[in-house]
Design a binder for these strands. Structure first.
Length: 218
DNA sequence: GAAACCTGGCGTCATCCTAA
DNA sequence: TTAGGATGACGCCAGGTTTC
């Protein structure tokens, strides 16, 4: 991982905590003080989004930190140089035609169709990715070919297919993003521990030097 | 034991950012 | 300029913990 490779997180102090719950508490506090919001009793989700300004990504922050330190490479795209990449990262390593997620089972890539089976948690749809040509509805294939007639239904199917594909990719991306973020937080925590030890040692050293430089006269 | 609260994970949406 | 990946934010759920 990039932060492990470069030991990036041991360079500069932590500047920000990325707890979304903290943000939610702050927003809630703001909302409580907002008279109009009080009168409504509920904050509109759009209003919440306006209140919440998007924070810079943790990856960007690390880049900025590293740019101040000569010899520290910037964070690039995550390379899978490291061995032992978790096999459950579906977007990176799908060894066979089937892989499992928490909400559904995915078959081999390329074609997606919502099955809307009731997932374990409730009404989350599950998706099956079908093989390229085998089970593909003919209408979808025709819609993809140039010059063919596009009925409104075919267009709708195509739009739906694209949406499902995008959702599936985003789902996997979100998982990967969370995994990276957890590692990032762990990294910061270990950095705190190291700096605390260093600080303690320096304080002890300072006390020792003070004793040496100013010996007691009585 | 039930209710309240906390925590962690997930899917989705909106937005940012970058490569093409 | 645009498509697509990355990620912050939101809402929901399940499981664990605390309080009564």
């Amino acid at each position: 991982m990039w932060w492990h490779q470069h030991n990036l997180c041991f360079r500069r102090p932590i500047e920000e905590d990325y707890s979304s719950r903290d943000v939610e508490e702050k927003v809630a506090t703001i909302a409580e003080t907002d008279e109009s919001a009080e009168s409504e009793g509920v904050i509109d989700s759009h209003k919440r989004r306006e209140i919440l300004s998007r924070r810079p990504s943790y990856r960007k922050i690390l880049n900025e930190l590293s740019s101040d330190v000569p010899g520290v490479p910037k964070i690039e795209e995550e390379k899978s140089e490291e061995e032992g990449t978790p096999p459950n990262i579906a977007t990176m390593a799908v060894p066979t035609s089937i892989y499992q997620t928490s909400t559904g089972q995915y078959n081999e890539e390329t074609e997606l169709a919502p099955s809307h089976m009731a997932a374990a948690t409730g009404d989350m749809p599950t998706y099956q990715i079908r093989a390229p040509t085998a089970a593909l509805p003919q209408g979808v294939v025709m819609a993809a070919s140039p010059g063919s007639l596009h009925s409104s239904q075919q267009l709708a199917e195509e739009a739906t297919r694209k949406r499902e594909l995008r959702l599936m990719k985003n789902r996997e991306a979100a998982k990967e993003c969370r995994r990276r973020k957890k590692e990032y937080v762990k990294c910061l925590e270990s950095r705190v521990a190291v700096l605390e030890v260093q600080n303690k040692k320096l304080i002890e050293e300072l006390e020792t030097l003070k004793d040496i430089c100013s010996p007691k006269t009585d």
